[in-house]
């Protein structure tokens, strides 16, 4: 067996899903005996069979990846409770194995994946999706790039055909539930963690906490970072539409036109909304200079 062959064999075995009892499966997807597979490359010792030794890595892999995703989605975990949440994460990870050197990216596709999987909570599926979207937006905002904000004088030169760059850490969300209240409550009760080492550790249980009741109500959120902290700012629908259009690289003129097309607001009211939106955004440094790319390292 070459090094590459051994690594492919072991990677398949380590990443094979566990049984519901969190033990290693005895049969591979093609029906092969995992005992036999393990014996082909792992030595037994006087206390453990080849299967037992492989199982330590198999269990550790799943504990590690489930923990990583759980830490990114504590509010979704609290909403679903441990057992259902674990089933959801397992199902997600079966379809989205890690393709990145960092665990930070492991949960990136969960909100999108959850949209297509109502079976984990049919009655509160839309609420779950909103929570997941906000929790991922938090991650993106927490460690996203911050570019130098535009200075006051830069705004003087804006014209109808200007395009504006928004801070990469600014995330805009149109939600069906006011989940910012729920996510804030859970995040406040959740200690911050980081990737620490290769040490083996058992997953911590999340405590069941009382969650605020969620009634359907459309909210528009700007998730942004200010002085190293992430904030959820509720914004008006017009501000959301305007910022979203600018983020999509529409010109200033196009963004304004598309935002107010069919609006019942008077031209004066529209002007007030535009002015308020720009004043807030500029104050919080959301408009910035275009990214020229990081210094190249060869």
């Amino acid at each position: 067996m070459t090094l590459l062959e051994l690594q492919r064999r072991m990677s398949d075995d380590v990443r094979r899903p566990l049984t519901p009892e969190m033990a290693m499966q005895t049969e591979a997807a093609d029906g092969a005996s995992v005992h036999t597979l393990a014996e082909t490359y792992i030595k037994p010792n006087d206390r453990l069979t080849s299967f037992d030794r492989l199982e330590i890595y198999n269990r550790q892999y799943w504990f590690r990846v489930i923990t990583a995703v759980s830490e990114d989605y504590p509010a979704l975990n609290a909403l679903l409770r441990e057992k259902k949440f674990d089933a959801l994460v397992l199902a997600y990870l079966k379809e989205h194995a890690s393709t990145s050197w960092t665990l930070r990216d492991l949960g990136a596709k969960l909100p999108q994946w959850l949209e297509a999987h109502p079976e984990f909570g049919p009655k509160k599926h839309k609420l779950m999706v909103d929570v997941a979207r906000l929790e991922w937006a938090y991650i993106e905002s927490y460690d996203g790039t911050a570019l130098p904000p535009l200075a006051e004088e830069d705004f003087r030169y804006l014209a109808e055909d200007s395009t504006l760059t928004l801070q990469p850490h600014l995330q805009l969300l149109a939600l069906r539930y006011p989940v910012d209240e729920l996510v804030l409550a859970v995040h406040k009760a959740t200690p911050e963690t980081d990737i620490v080492s290769n040490a083996v550790s058992e997953r911590k249980k999340t405590s069941g906490m009382a969650l605020p009741e969620m009634l359907r109500a459309k909210v528009f959120l700007a998730v942004h970072r200010y002085d190293s902290s992430v904030y959820y700012r509720r914004i008006e629908p017009e501000a959301f539409a305007l910022l979203a259009a600018l983020k999509a690289q529409q010109t200033l003129g196009e963004a304004i036109e598309n935002t107010f097309s069919g609006s019942r607001l008077s031209p004066e009211e529209q002007a007030q909304k535009i002015q308020a939106c720009f004043a807030h955004a500029a104050e919080l440094g959301w408009f910035c200079r275009e990214q020229t790319g990081p210094a190249s390292i060869q």
């Binding site: 690594q7 990677s11 194995a97 890690s98 393709t99 050197w101 665990l103």
Partner: peptide, 16 residues
Amino acid sequence: WGSVDGRYTHDLLPLP
């Protein structure tokens, strides 16, 4: 080792 064919185990797996 810890990755193969673009899949990551996020573990420090022993080498032969």
